[in-house]
């Protein structure tokens, strides 16, 4: 019998949870469906550009693959955020969360494990995305740049933000359905503000007393907040900066993403500690 043995380190515990999480993501069909959707969307955007080039004879883009790469990465990151929310909420719903905490798992190792596992799944998807972009490059004649490769690699940091965000929203919920609805609602609000701001910018303003102006100012302020709150905006910002070769912006974006990722992980662990690990109603 073991009378005294130290608990394994938090990172060791987190890596066991991460391996389980990554294996579940790799073996599930959902990830492949999301990847397919991401690649179809990316190809479609690229084909729109090709068509514009064919018709107009001229297309000015910092990187022809920039917009399609952004979309592909956003789709994969969105899927992983939903997966993180589902997996976290399911642990509480089916009771496995409490069983984990009977052992050497604590809040921070649990959250790190969840985020780390799904981030590993994201990293595993990157070579596949790259291979498809190589294929698209051969088909369209657009050159693949080193910036595009750098965007793929650096997207790992903002991807951690989106996954952590999914975990953060789910740790307080009791059911998978609630977690998914909450995540969808938050994303809808974030996208809705951005959409409304872009829409109001299209409204012509004839005089300084127009009621559109205060609305536009309010939405502009909200949109700026969303830019810092939305986990997806970090991914967009970093990829956009790298493909444009704006390295200072890219470094700032990466720093902000790193800080945000750390913040959501710590907040998720604190919220989980406050909420407890029991199933709902126990």
């Amino acid at each position: 019998m073991t009378m005294t043995r130290a608990a394994p380190g938090r990172l060791a515990v987190a890596s066991v949870i991460a391996r389980r999480e990554a294996a579940a993501a790799v073996h599930g069909i959902g990830g492949y469906l999301a990847l397919t959707v991401a690649l179809v969307a990316a190809t479609w955007i690229l084909l729109v550009d090709v068509r514009a080039l064919t018709i107009g004879g001229l297309l000015v883009l910092a990187d022809p693959f920039g917009p399609s790469l952004t979309i592909a990465l956003l789709v994969v990151a969105l899927y992983l955020a939903v997966s993180a929310a589902v997996s976290t909420a399911r642990d509480r719903e089916i009771g496995t969360l409490e069983v984990l905490f009977w052992g050497p798992v604590d809040e921070i190792s649990y959250v790190l494990g969840k985020v780390g596992g799904l981030l590993a799944a994201f990293i595993a998807a990157l070579p596949l995305l790259f291979a498809v972009f190589v294929l698209l490059s051969l088909m369209t004649g657009f050159a693949l740049t080193s910036k595009m490769l750098a965007s793929l690699v650096l997207s790992i940091v903002p991807a951690a933000v989106t996954i952590g965000f999914g975990v953060l929203l789910a740790v307080g919920t009791s059911r998978v359905r609630t977690a998914v609805l909450l995540l969808v609602a938050v994303i809808a609000v974030l996208l809705g503000i951005n959409f409304a701001y872009n829409l109001v910018l299209l409204v012509p303003v004839s005089d300084a007393a127009s009621p559109v102006l205060p609305l536009r100012d309010t939405l502009a302020a909200l949109d700026e907040i969303v830019r810092w709150l939305s986990p997806f905006s970090y991914l967009e910002r970093v990829v956009d900066a790298v493909t444009r070769g704006a390295w200072r912006s890219a470094v700032l974006g990466l720093g902000a993403a790193l800080g945000y990722a750390a913040a959501v992980i710590v907040l998720a662990a604190l919220w989980l500690r406050r909420r407890g690990v029991q199933r709902s109603g126990e």
Partner: peptide, 21 residues
């Protein structure tokens, strides 16, 4: 949250919460 303390204990509840896969 005492992880070392939990190493001294093995626990079983009435319902076994298992992973489906």
């Amino acid at each position: 949250g005492d992880r070392a303390g939990r190493m001294l204990i093995g626990a079983v509840s009435e319902i076994q919460y298992l992973y489906g896969d």
